[in-house]
Amino acid sequence: MSDISRRKFLQTTSASALLLFSGLGRESQAASVQSYPSKKIGNIKNLKVNEPLAFNYPDNNSPCVLVNVGKEASGGIGQGKSVVSFSTRCTHMGCPLTYNNGRLVCKCHYSMFDVSRNGQTYQGLASQWVAQVVLRLDAATGNIYAEGVEGLIYGRIGNLKLS
């Protein structure tokens, strides 16, 4: 990697690094039982279109984003099936992804992922589509739960296999 790209990354990750310490303590144990934890990550009533919400899942070391894209999206929940969630580790080489207007963009090598199309790489270098978080909506309360991840989180041999 060129030095400049690495430097650039260090600048851009400081925000997400803060997030690493904000999750629940229990999840790291989930790795040993090999099943995804259920985690409340937000409430559908508070989600505004194109205003992403950052959280960590399935453990504190895995930044994700929850977003209402304002139109039907593959794997979406809610009335318009428009609420989706993805890992924000770029599946190319792990840089942080930025949500913007229906897509996740990586400024390291410019991969772009379409969040309403299953996180497919519609431009750029990432040969693996970005990992999508499985969501459940509690209709009564509007609470949204993360309950699994489809696809591999970058930098892991298994999504739940960190020691």
Binding site: R6, S62, H92, M93, G151, Y154, G155, R156, I157, K161
Partner: peptide
């Protein structure tokens, strides 16, 4: 492989 891989470490092993 027990640790979260670093960003731009030069080692990538993905689904594809």
């Amino acid at each position: 492989l027990s640790k979260q891989g670093d960003i731009m470490s030069g080692f990538s092993y993905t689904e594809t």
